[in-house]
Every structure is written in structure tokens, then in C-alpha cells.
């Protein structure tokens, strides 16, 4: 094989000032944003290069939607709203929550493969790797949401939202994705293995989505479950999105959802940054 290297000679007099064509003409913020951009592109490429994952995270919620619409739905009383109109907000939020867990898998995989070490030895913004994965979750969830809502239209979903309300629905959906992804990043950084992170995410999201107003009205639940279900964050987000979609009463759900998402981010982002600096193989 031909091995011909052409590294620059490094004379002693030139130490530390070698011309390595490194662009240093911009400020720190520029490079921080550049680092994030390069790593966002990396994570988005993972979506297109690993279509199985996108397919899985899009098909599974559609199966759930069909299951609830046609199998369980007939037995569930949702008062003034048709069951399919009631259901879509719940399925959507569940899809977002599970989709946002992809960050935990991506982060755990990067650690296992030594890629995190490689990035940590580079002169880049510390948390750019994780930001890349988090932004990729936003893109993936956006695609899954659109496919889910269009499919829902075929099985009788009749939303009443106007353009302004759809914009608010997607804004809330993405904010929710963003806050779950940063929690998922913490799981990915703490996990002992890629397998264990999958279980961690499942145990975190499963109870929150099923013990909620996603699939049935909470007033059908026993009192203890009902107290939990009515006060946990996912229910507020579901109720807010449902209200915007089909015109149920929004009450305080919108504000409470925002407070949950923002305060979760305020806590999880610094924790992630701290763990990322500490975490090594």
C-alpha cells in the first residue's frame, strides 16, 4: 500500500505558532455556534442514514393510534368529544416523549464507542455533541408528528385548530421534546450501557404517559391514580395540546406546561454540561 504522509515540518523556532490553516479570525461565540452546527448536521445525518429508526418511531405510534381508535376506543367514554378527537393529542405527546428518548441512546452509544472522548480532546464547545443529538430529536419528532396527524385525518380525526393554534401546538410539542431530550441526555451520560439506557427511558416515560389523560379521561381512574394523573406534567401538556386541537377547555394547562418545560430545562442543561465534562469511559 502507499503510505506517503505530508505533515508539516515543525522547526523549534516555530513552536506554538505553526501555520495549520486554523481559522481563528472570529470570536468565541462564532466558534461555539459553528461547533453546534457541525454536530447538529452529524446527528441529522444519523436520521437519514439510519431510516429504520425513523420508520420505527413513526410506525409504532400509528399502530397505537389504530389500536386505541378501533379496539379500546369503543369502550371509553369521552363525554362531548369523539374518541378519536380525544385520542390524537395523547398519542402525539406519547410519541414525542418516546422520540425524545433517542438522545439517551445516541449519547450512550457515543460514550461506548469512544467518540465522546475524541470530541472532548478537541478544542470545541463542551456540550455541542449533546446539543447535536437534542436538535436531531426535534427534527425526528417534527417528522413523526406530521405523519401521525395526517394519518389521524384518515381515521376520522377532525381538528378545529386555526393556523395560529397549529403554530402553538407545534411550538409546545417541540418545547416539550426539547425538555425531555435534555433529561434523556442525563440518562445517556449516567447509563452503564446502551441496553440499560433503553430500560431507564422506558421506566421514566411509560408511567407518565399511561397514567395520564392520554388515552382515557382521568375521572374514570381510582382516586390515588387520578390525583397523580391530573397533576403530573404530561397530562398538562396533553390537555393543552388537546384544547388547541379540538377546542376543549385549556384552563391553566398551557401556562403550567410552559412552567414545567422551562424549569426542567433550567435544571437539566447545567447538569448535562457538568456530567459531560466528568463522564469518561
Amino acid at each position: 500500500m502507499k503510505v506517503q504522509l505530508n505533515l508539516l515540518q515543525v522547526p523549534n523556532s516555530m513552536k506554538n505558532t505553526i501555520n495549520r490553516k486554523i481559522d481563528q479570525s472570529h470570536g468565541r461565540l462564532y466558534y461555539a455556534l459553528l461547533d453546534i452546527w457541525v454536530l447538529v448536521l452529524r446527528s441529522i445525518r444519523h436520521i437519514t442514514k439510519n431510516p429504520d429508526q425513523l420508520l420505527g418511531s413513526t410506525i409504532q405510534p400509528i399502530m397505537f393510534m389504530l389500536l386505541f381508535r378501533y379496539v379500546f376506543g369503543g369502550a371509553i367514554n369521552t363525554g362531548g368529544v369523539s374518541y378519536v378527537n380525544f385520542l390524537v393529542a395523547g398519542i402525539l405527546v406519547q410519541t414525542l416523549a418516546f422520540g425524545a428518548l433517542t438522545t439517551s441512546l445516541s449519547v450512550a452509544t457515543d460514550i461506548k464507542r469512544g467518540i465522546v472522548d475524541r470530541f472532548r480532546s478537541l478544542p470545541i464547545l463542551n456540550s455541542a455533541v449533546i446539543t447535536g443529538h437534542v436538535v436531531a430529536d426535534l427534527v425526528r419528532n417534527f417528522i413523526s408528528s406530521i405523519v401521525l396527524i395526517i394519518t389521524a385525518l384518515f381515521i376520522g380525526f377532525r381538528p378545529e385548530a386555526d393556523v395560529r393554534e397549529w403554530v402553538m401546538i407545534f411550538a409546545l410539542a417541540l418545547l416539550f421534546t426539547f425538555s425531555v431530550s435534555w433529561i434523556a441526555a442525563i440518562m445517556g451520560l449516567l447509563a452503564k450501557s446502551v441496553e440499560s439506557v433503553q430500560w431507564m427511558g422506558f421506566f421514566f416515560v411509560f408511567p407518565l404517559t399511561f397514567a395520564s389523560a392520554a388515552f382515557v379521561p382521568t375521572d374514570s381512574m381510582p382516586w390515588f391514580l387520578r390525583v397523580f394523573a391530573e397533576n403530573q406534567p404530561i397530562t398538562h401538556i396533553i390537555e393543552a395540546i388537546r384544547a388547541l386541537m379540538v377546542g376543549t377547555s385549556i384552563g391553566n394547562h398551557g401556562w403550567i406546561s410552559l412552567v414545567w418545560c422551562v424549569s426542567s430545562l433550567v435544571i437539566s442543561i447545567p447538569i448535562t454540561a457538568y456530567l459531560f465534562r466528568k463522564r469518561s469511559m
Binding site: 452529524r42 444519523h46 464507542r113 467518540i115 470545541i124 469511559m281
Partner: peptide, 23 residues
Amino acid sequence: FAAVDEFLTGRENLVMMGRLYHL
């Protein structure tokens, strides 16, 4: 460990790394 991104191609890995070194 051979710490390369397994979904990206060899070329994409190299270009990404160059960009991260701010070339």
C-alpha cells in the same frame, strides 16, 4: 477504541473532524 462515527462515511468523518478543529 476506533472512535469513528459508524453511520457517517470515512470522508464525512474526516471533514467533520476538520471543521471541529476549525479548519
